[in-house]
Design a protein around this nucleic acid. Structure first.
Lengths: 217, 217, 217, 217
DNA sequence: CATGAATGAGTCTTCATTCAT
DNA sequence: AATGAATGAAGACTCATTCAT
């Protein structure tokens, strides 16, 4: 009488939808109010749902917060994989695919960056938060190392330590994110991408050209 | 862990000393528990003082937090000025003085970095926090621009946009801080300084040598 | 003393009922402990409810206090209207209807009088409190003026200023309330009503007889 | 060496002066902030003295408050006695002397009235407060009774119960005070005195004339 | 006598969580 | 599956009082 078809599908679908609804709300609220200002009342109101809903679907608030971070990680990784799938197996192209994902407009919204840094700010004492992004960070790090190793080899620059360069590129990318967080007026995704390209050009001039528009806003 | 057993037993202490005592406690607690886990009870216990003390000296908890960030900014700036005073008026030396301050062991303690990022994580919605560090950031930015302008001129590299390079260096420095926060095992001040030197060598090979120890841990 | 054992056990009650429950508790506690001794703990314990309930229904303690005064005003006015509805359109009867309401046993309980004066005692600096009763006071004042004007006209006492008499009657009524507050042993509603009748007889002997029981307790 | 003259006088005088200073401050603060808003910080700041001073001179805050009420009572009584000393032994004159004291400008300042009612508002549960004014009230009540008894006798109005009239006059006087508290714009001492005279004229036309200015503001 | 820094019990308020509906 | 009234532990803040100076 309830539902005559596949029971599981019907039951599962709404559940996932509710969870996503809450995660979306969490992104918004964390960005607006910080992790310390994120209350269940704010979350459920933003989601347009009732007070008990978080505990119903996630057990408690912290789990929702973790799911939010996980969702961010997941989305970022998916975007990267999509970029990667679209390019040939050339180290420069592969590396740039990562950068494109890293500074993709839908990845780098002010809201999402704010949420990332909100979690970073707590990750010192919240091992959970660090664990969630750890695998992703590792995977990305290895990927960068591999790209740089190949690029260094192709460049014939023996003096260049691939891992060091790799790390430097990553750090700069992260630093540009911080800029987008703190000074959104001055730093946007296009600007950041140009910055990255400038850096890459200096390390691997044969593989990366300077950005087209050299005029700084 | 409580209080370092100096002369806190004195019922009356100079106002400045009490305030510093509370700011020190705040650093510790914010680093350990995050901004959202920083309670007045934790703070006063850490300081070895009574519940009402925060209100007495700072009006309320938020003011203490702001004073903590301000203290961090102040200390950083003072360290930079000290480095600067010790070098001749050469752009490369001046720039490196800034880097030395930025990655000085007493500036870059795990505790202090954690506190910085705790505030960054909330700065999206807390204009107050951003305002406190704004002037300092601006001053540093201008200083970097000036150094890079001179370095570019001396290098004869017409293609290099000084402001862009300047920004890139800053972003990388910030990114390295994030690394020290998230992966303290892998990134320490010495490593970070070497990274910075590698970057600077690539932009200005005539002014900056590659770091001495090219072996990556 | 706690709760009168009706259906407070119900976890959920109509909003109005909970609010009344809290207002009733407030009356009791204010009368017993004064406005300055009225704590949320006392209030919620008296109501037999939990600590958070005041915030849930009134936002904060002050709002509950204001609602308590408003309830007092409302009740008094309703009682007066009821009395008024029961008498013909004769000024003496109408005026006496007001007095009857003013000294009705359910209006003049020691508890309620104590609450009134608790608010009067703070009304000097709390504009809110005065505002709440202001309209009611004005309405009553106008009503009294009208009654007295008609009574003076009917009495043919040209020398009598209706407004002055009206004011005097009101002031006396208020003074009797103060007596009931300060000396409940000596002044009760019956006594007060007789006092009022004595006063009215002196101003309008044709309309008001001396009270039946001339013996003073 | 300290002081060569009468030791006691010198020591006592400043103490009384400090106490009066604090009582004056209390009047002001209670009138402005109500009893519930009267904090020691406010009191000592108003007095221009240090935090510990109240405990030093009065033991605790409550004692100062009681002393403040006592001072009010004392002043009122003294004013009455002064008025009384200036009139012949005629009941009408004696009664009017009381009224003149009751509505004397220095007795009926907005501040003092506010303080009186602040204490009335708490007197329901604070026996101490009631006790302080009790003797004075009793004395005044007896005095009024006596005056009225003589006035009734002189008037030849057998129907008039002296005690009832006496009480009524007192109640009205109190009611006028409440008016001065709640509606200071409409009721001042002159107006109140005229009201009282109107009332007295109605009870004892041979002894009290109607007030000179019959026009109501 | 007088000060005022410090205390800490007591208040109000917040908010994650529960649970009857 | 969802609601939202109610809870109550935990939080920030107040303020009368103490006590070393």
């Amino acid at each position: 009488m309830q539902n005559s078809g596949t029971l599981t599908t019907r039951r599962t679908a709404p559940k996932e939808q509710r969870e996503q609804q809450l995660i979306d709300a969490a992104m918004q609220i964390i960005a607006e109010h910080g992790l310390s200002g994120t209350t269940t009342a704010l979350l459920t109101r933003q989601a347009g749902l009732s007070a008990g809903i978080i505990n119903l679907h996630f057990g408690n608030k912290d789990k929702l917060l973790e799911a939010t971070l996980a969702s961010l990680v997941q989305e970022h990784r998916a975007r990267w994989m999509a970029s990667l799938a679209a390019v040939p197996d050339e180290p420069a192209e592969r590396l740039w695919a990562l950068m494109e994902a890293h500074f993709a407009p839908e990845i780098c919204t002010p809201t999402k960056i704010a949420v990332w840094f909100a979690f970073f700010g707590e990750s010192g004492h919240r091992a959970t938060y660090r664990h969630i992004s750890e695998n992703f960070d590792l995977e990305r790090s290895d990927f960068m190392d591999e790209c740089c190793t190949r690029l260094v080899a192709e460049s014939g620059k023996a003096a260049l330590d691939p891992e060091r360069v790799s790390h430097l590129i990553e750090s700069t990318a992260d630093g540009l994110w911080l800029d987008m967080l703190l000074y959104p007026e001055e730093m946007d995704v296009d600007n950041a991408r140009d910055q990255m390209r400038t850096l890459l050009h200096h390390f691997f001039p044969r593989h990366f050209e300077m950005p087209a528009n050299p005029i700084y806003p």
